[in-house]
């Protein structure tokens, strides 16, 4: 089992930093994508969470069952937040 290399770990970190700064900026400047900002920000959060699970936690190399459990958690948590935001009228 090979680990995430230090170089790739730094690349994942750079993605997490850029996505965090980007979604923070977007949330404070909602005119850019307006009504859809919340949805976009939650999808970015899902991408960040998946990067942590798959690479920092090394689930991309874990047995299928473990990887599936984490994939399901990320998808369910995101779908629940986005879905209930949608049912609330997307506000």
């Amino acid at each position: 089992m090979s680990a995430l290399s230090n170089r790739n770990a730094v690349l994942v970190w750079a993605f997490l930093v850029a996505a965090t700064l980007g979604s923070g900026w977007l949330a404070e400047h909602q005119g850019t994508v307006g009504h859809w900002t919340a949805l976009f920000v939650m999808l970015v959060a899902y991408a960040k969470g998946r990067a942590v699970m798959m690479y920092f936690m090394e689930m991309h190399e874990a047995p299928f069952a473990w990887r599936l459990a984490f994939e399901i958690w990320g998808a369910v948590a995101t779908a629940a937040i986005v879905g209930l935001w949608w049912f609330a009228g997307g506000a």
Binding site: A27, Q30, V44, I81
Partner: peptide, 17 residues
């Protein structure tokens, strides 16, 4: 870390600003 990545947008960023 992972839990915070979901808590932060849910609590702080869903609201139109």
């Amino acid at each position: 870390d992972l839990l915070w990545l979901f808590l932060f947008p849910m609590l702080y960023l869903l609201v139109p600003r």
